[in-house]
Write a protein that binds this DNA or RNA. Sequence first.
DNA 1: CTCAAATGTATATTTATCTAGACAATTAAA
DNA 2: TTTAATTGTCTAGATAAATATACATTTGAG
Lengths: 251, 251
Amino acid sequence: MTGTKQAGVDRTSGVALWRQIADDIRVAIGAGEFREAGKLPGEMALAERFGVNRHTVRAAIAALQTEGIVKAKAGRGTEILSDIRLKMPISRRTRFSSGLGGQARRPETAYIASGEAEASEEVAAALRIAPGTPCVTLETLGLADGIPVSLAFHTFPAARFAGIDEHFRRERSVTRSFAAMGLADYVRISTDISARHADEREREWLRLTPGGIVLEALAINADLEGVPVQYSRTLFSAGRVSLHVGTDVEL
Amino acid sequence: MTGTKQAGVDRTSGVALWRQIADDIRVAIGAGEFREAGKLPGEMALAERFGVNRHTVRAAIAALQTEGIVKAKAGRGTEILSDIRLKMPISRRTRFSSGLGGQARRPETAYIASGEAEASEEVAAALRIAPGTPCVTLETLGLADGIPVSLAFHTFPAARFAGIDEHFRRERSVTRSFAAMGLADYVRISTDISARHADEREREWLRLTPGGIVLEALAINADLEGVPVQYSRTLFSAGRVSLHVGTDVEL
DNA sequence: CTCAAATGTATATTTATCTAGACAATTAAA
DNA sequence: TTTAATTGTCTAGATAAATATACATTTGAG
């Protein structure tokens, strides 16, 4: 039996069937489709559903197992370990830790690297400074319950925030680092969101499999006078995070 | 020579090399990497850069050609036709046509289909009605200069908006259809953004190649009293659109 | 015109992916 | 304990993707 045209999978290819199926199942888990049973349907049932051979489904499940979101056991079935997709709020008061607060998780921010750089055209336009102006760069990893969900590159004007990376290494929070440097409050001015495949380095940090997708958010934060204080490029693991834009939020 | 470990491509599989390379080149074009030359490097140079055979690069370029963003010509090279990415604003007053207005393009909305359906759990929660309540569904395609950029599924409560699909077929605009039914103004309450691979049907409408990525925006619009009037699921072609969230925009 | 640099086309080989079928091993329920 | 349902393993074959060469065709520069 050569599969006719089943749910979602595409053979005109480019992406292996097992990968398409793994992505599909991951999304279904996130949508709560199997929450009741607490486990996936049997391999045969899934093979039927996607119109592929059982072994192809097995390859997909194997990938999901290495991601740590399911666990197969002979005789029992394939248990769902995590069925979560974080909802990251994007509003005037977007902050990583408090954004995840309500979702009963343990948010955490890790330091990766920092340095100095001259503002590129892109950064300069965002921070409203001249290209070439000295800046502080900071790279961080956001985790929820130990699982990486975001990889961020922050840029601050050095004139005002030289040494903020040192604060961050102690405080492990951009908000608290700003506070330590005398900036008590700030707001999000704009966020630009796109999506693409993660590159090798990004996959490594975010623990994604090849073909994994990231949401890329370019954000500008400003102080209460409207002067830009931070430009960030944040990559969210698309399988684990959705961005929620509430236009009327003012927490 | 068996490639060691070149720029970005990953053989641990799942995604075909030609697709990874096509995605990579598309991003590079968007970043303006070849803007100076106006064309891509030669096939041999690209093969070297990615550590693959020339034919693999050719497959990638063929895909980019069917997307219409490059044009190869024997003897001349591979010309870059478009290096543009639309910026779709998401704000309290998000509307498709006016959103693209400033970008010197010809926005257009096409009717695909419409019908009646009972509100699912998801829709009911968004529109604040009981599950099973009759609704009007409307599927539309958004284009810019003739190129499809978004595929949308709208749901309206039938009690208030029965026949809105007929208005849409005449007006070709949700905003004008609302107006024709006595709703002069409405605002965006929330938008939920995620990213995933497009399925077959979506690729067809959005003219994407297999493995193409879509930004999925789940949006709720409400009248000025805050009563939800519309729930939409819009798929944006991630290669052609980025979503811009300005928290203080009031166009 | 000649030549170099591109892309276009063709064929054969290797490797990865998918299918097919058979059977073993584990688990939970009858 | 028996049985049914499930995952685990193995082998073999078909299809798709990637490599390796070779040569043709188109274009622009000298």
